[in-house]
Design a protein around this nucleic acid. Structure first.
Lengths: 190, 190
DNA sequence: TTTTCGACCGAAAAACGATATTGGTCGAAA
DNA sequence: TTTCGACCAATATCGTTTTTCGGTCGAAAA
């Protein structure tokens, strides 16, 4: 990708994080990259387009980080634990960085929903692959992989909530592992 | 409780459900209940007060319904299943009835948050009691009741999400039972 | 004493027109 | 190929006026 383009995305990301999407003007971005506003439009066709690429970049980094965490874990169970805890800590960081955006994400509801769906698909693919391998290795006792991966996805999604309302004194890693203890072992007496 | 008061609450609930809290004026309520506006203030000290009592009434009915469902189930596992499925179906009904409110509940953020907390406490009490009895009856293998009940609470909270965004083709009872299968049996190979 | 209501208040919202911003375009120049 | 100043139209903003609405009060019904 063009070097200038990359730079614009970086600057824009900073400004979005600091002032939010609406309060950041194209002028602001252009000025900070030392360009005329029109020049920025040579690289991006709209403000939304810049936003989209910022999100796309962040999502990619997020997924790479998750993939790495999963690859570095050994057993299928550890892979899932690595996935979930990495997901939570990264989300915690994001929630701090993008605190200004949480209020106005309603305006980009459609777009955000799309990204969310993509991520959901990615997550399900990852989880299904781990589950499949886990079954082959006789670690898991699961007959419907699709359903189970969705249930895991939903359960850990529930853990997100405190990140965006009251983040203090919240230990996402501990919460994640407690949830995973339930999911792996169940609570019924076997 | 006063009969007139009850009537006002009923009418107000209808109007809130239909037009939302903000669009419903005290005049609207008074007119529909065939009273002067001032007369309504004889029974309630504020509009918020009426709203609070509507919510309080609905919450009470909700909890009674849940208690009944739990009591009618026999085994601890069935009690939890009864609790969760009743919770979900009732929430589904509420989401239809109060569809107009979901957008503006941000304004009453504090109050709604308070109600949510109360309900969360209630839910945890119910779940803990069932878990405790289940352990005594040797149905459950759990050492930290507090954590486990919170995890169940969080997991089923995740199931709520689709109710408020895309309700069609969503079967809350099936989803609930799938989630509970995981929670009861786990996915690890024992 | 309890209940109802019309008249009224003040704060906040809506309405509105004038002005400024801002996302985006275009053609020229470098 | 890249940059930018000039420009446009739509929208946001702002100052002002008007209306609405939650809430009060005192009197009168019951």
């Amino acid at each position: 990708m063009d070097d200038k383009k990359k730079r614009i995305i970086e600057i824009a990301e900073q400004l979005f994080a600091q002032y939010g999407f609406l309060k950041t003007t194209m002028e602001d971005i252009a000025k900070k990259v030392h360009m005329g506003k029109s020049s920025v439009y040579y690289y991006f066709k709209s403000k939304d387009d810049i936003f989209a690429e910022v999100i796309r970049k962040d999502t990619l980094i997020f997924q790479q980080k998750l993939d790495e965490a999963v690859n570095n874990a050994n057993t299928p169970e550890d892979k899932i634990r690595a996935y979930v805890t990495t997901r939570m800590t990264h989300l915690q960081d994001l929630s701090k960085f993008y605190s200004t955006l949480t209020d106005e994400y309603l305006d980009h509801y459609l777009f955000v929903e799309e990204v969310r769906k993509d991520f959901y698909d990615y997550e399900n693919t990852v989880l299904r692959n781990i589950l499949k391998k886990g079954i082959e290795q006789n670690c898991f006792d699961v007959d419907d992989i699709v359903t189970i991966s969705r249930m895991i996805s939903i359960a850990i999604k529930g853990l997100e909530f405190p990140l965006f309302v009251e983040a203090k004194d919240y230990d996402p890693v501990k919460e994640s592992n407690d949830m995973l203890d339930v999911i792996f072992n169940g609570i019924a007496n076997h």
